[in-house]
């Protein structure tokens, strides 16, 4: 195996594109190194992107923020302005692993690992975050929800890697929340999860919403019916019931060591309802 730590995006894409064998991007490494130790992964090349300029920066852009691909969870958690704008995203990132893992793990890595249970992904999908991708043919932007295509698989082409993720500006009376269910209080992979991002008008009526679900299908789901249940409501009980029903209906989970189909269907609805209430309350505080 070779290890390379290029200082430019161009060099990194060239290394990745030219590698004849298995090449992997190394940012936080918290999934990659585990796969190398226990998962039978034996890459021929690791491209460490942390030495590339901008990879570790959170930069204001058009009223939103651009988060470099190597920004760790701990660094995200310490960024007060990002947390104020997208609290659901930051809380989702902070749920990934332990304090030690937070010191390394990145959102971009969480996304490219392409686990349907990845904590930050439903929150990013709800936030309509846009990934910027560098590749042999230059840069392109892609909505986060189009990156994972199946467990462990992404739409990135050979030589491509994510350089940053953009979180747009939003009105004052808008916010988001992310909840997951785990059997302990920490250290587990989500059994199921829900992210809700919403905007309220001055009367407190929801005018816009995005609802995403994790660990209940092969990829994170963006559930339009669930969003529709909220839009036009003040998140009264009937709207929340409709939200829950839409989420349960959208689920296509499996039985596995972490949970059952039935459990995931039921609890996804519970989490979506609770997350919607939290997002509503946060939006109210911001307006």
């Amino acid at each position: 195996m070779q290890y390379a730590a290029p200082e430019t995006t161009a060099e990194a894409t060239r290394l990745l594109a030219d590698s004849p064998g298995t090449a992997r991007v190394l940012a936080g490494g918290t999934d990659l190194l585990v796969q190398m130790k226990f998962g039978g992964l034996a890459p021929d090349l690791l491209v460490d992107i942390k030495n590339i300029k901008g990879m570790r920066d959170v930069t204001p852009e058009d009223g939103g923020f651009r988060v470099g691909a190597a920004v760790s969870g701990a660094e995200m958690g310490e960024h007060k302005a990002m947390r104020a704008l997208w609290p659901g995203v930051v809380e989702a990132v902070e749920l990934i692993g332990s304090t030690q893992v937070q010191g390394r793990a990145t959102m971009a890595g969480n996304l490219c690992n392409a686990s349907p249970a990845a904590d930050s992904v439903p929150a990013m999908v709800a936030a309509n975050a846009i990934a910027r991708i560098a590749g042999p043919d230059g840069e392109r932007d892609c909505p986060v929800q189009d990156i994972p295509t199946a467990p462990g698989k992404t739409s990135l082409q050979k030589g491509e890697f994510i350089t940053s993720i953009f979180f747009p500006a939003r009105p004052d009376n808008a916010s988001d929340a992310y909840l997951r269910f785990i059997p302990r209080t920490e250290m587990d992979i989500a059994v199921c999860s829900a992210g809700v991002s919403l905007t309220l008008d001055t009367n407190g009526t929801c005018t816009d919403a995005r609802v995403s679900l994790g660990a209940v299908a092969a990829t994170v789901l963006l559930v339009q019916d669930a969003a529709n249940a909220l839009i036009g409501s003040k998140l009264d009980d009937s709207a929340l019931e409709a939200l829950g029903a839409a989420c349960s209906a959208a689920c296509n989970p499996i039985d596995d060591k972490r949970g059952t189909i039935e459990f995931r269907r039921d609890v996804t609805a519970v989490l979506a309802k609770r997350a919607a209430k939290i997002a509503q309350s946060r939006a109210g505080e911001r307006s």
Partner: peptide
């Protein structure tokens, strides 16, 4: 065995 690791063999952690 499906859970041969501390990730899915879940012993109590301090916050539990």
């Amino acid at each position: 065995l499906q859970n041969a690791g501390f990730l899915d063999y879940r012993i109590p952690v301090a916050s539990d």
